[in-house]
Design a binder for these strands. Structure first.
Lengths: 218, 218
DNA sequence: ATTAATTTTTAAGTATGCTTAAATTTTTTA
DNA sequence: TAAAAAATTTAAGCATACTTAAAAATTAAT
């Protein structure tokens, strides 16, 4: 199957499981940077191949076969990200860019070798679960709130959850973004309040405002 | 530039530097598994892009730009082979297959990271030189004759050079082939004669019959 | 509940990278 | 060196994966 097809089923899979809950052609098109017409066209072609259930004007849905393919590509993507993250000093952005290409040119054999080398990890550096070779995926969430972080350890921001303007200003000031790597200094103030320091700035926050994921003992 | 184009210039480069000394469209076509017509067609297109010098019925020649591109792809191929060889227990055949795909989806940045990780090696597991980031290539030959091999060390056969029928029969019997990994046991018999044991069979040979390349201390 | 806005679909067209078949040129060999 | 063989080129055509433009359907808004 072609790169275009793999990216198409992956886009449906990701839209279905993550952020956007709409898998109509237009959303997939936007995600892939192609025209709506091209997306409709592809959807029809993939219906013939039994990868997608297509009905006019309806959401696109992966068949069992299509889901398997998507999981296989996602597995390779997340394995590459994990592997490159471990092996090389590269930004997560660059790593993502490489994985986006490598995922389509990786045999199941090589994927298994990478997985074994890493000790068959269940999550990638972003905290996203890595499907196993059979397409099974761990659904448990390993992310924790920033307040639960251990002093001095390094984490990756997997989500920013807050309705506190002050908090977002703090993030902006420190360039704390989704997928940023941060080292946490903190101090309990009271029951549900913690003072967090990142860089030279600090803020007092209550729990459950920020989702982070543990990455490295460093 | 597309995968098809990268493979095309690579094929010209390899044909020009290795085995076959003919870079007419038919030879390139055979190497790539495409029709002669397709090769002629591509050659004309690449001439427009200043990658290939094309003259009807003549050999195809890479321009400076085309050579640069070929060296860049060859670099990535050989770096991937070196890297996968070091990291994973896979057959050289499988490793070659993976590298053939990965070479086209690897940024210069990642190639440099791999190169640095390996200590900027000058040769890959086959003994082929790895061009550096500027496309410079080491021409010295690190291969040695089998008679020069060190007892108990492991080598890769980079070439079989002999007009001795007995030697080739010996190789056939022991499945010694180009790119085979062998562990050498040997014993000097006289001035130019050495008894080599590979597996349970042995043969008495004079020097300069077999080119091998050092691979591993193992 | 219409109208307006948006989205989806259809239709026609394009670039890439191939194919096969036939014409042309080169190379071999007898 | 002339005929036969082989290779190259030209020509026509195809599949993939897109594009833009216009028609049709859906969704949103007043």
């Amino acid at each position: 199957m072609s790169v275009a097809i793999e990216n198409f089923v992956k886009a449906i899979y990701n839209n279905d499981n993550h952020d956007i809950k709409d898998t109509k052609p237009g959303n997939i098109a936007k995600k892939l940077g192609i025209s709506n017409a091209a997306a409709t066209d592809m959807a029809k072609k993939l219906a013939v191949k039994d990868l997608v259930n297509y009905e006019k004007y309806q959401k696109l849905q992966l068949t069992e076969k299509g889901t398997k393919m998507a999981l296989n590509v996602v597995r390779k993507h997340r394995l590459w990200e994990s592997f490159l993250f471990k092996m090389f000093d590269m930004s997560l952005h660059d790593i993502h860019r490489e994985a986006e290409l490598l995922e389509h040119q990786t045999s199941d054999l090589l994927a298994d070798k990478i997985s074994a080398y890493l000790g068959h990890p269940k999550f990638d550096p972003h905290g996203d679960p890595i499907p196993n070779a059979d397409g099974e995926i761990t659904t448990e969430d390993t992310s924790i709130s920033l307040a639960e972080a251990t002093e001095g350890k390094t984490y990756i921001i997997s989500r920013l959850l807050s309705d506190d303007k002050e908090f977002f200003d703090f993030c902006a000031q420190n360039e704390i973004k989704y997928r940023n790597i941060v080292t946490v200094s903190k101090q309990f103030i009271s029951n549900k309040m913690t003072q967090i320091s990142i860089g030279s700035n600090s803020i007092v926050l209550n729990e459950d405002f920020t989702k982070i994921i543990y990455v490295d003992e460093n």
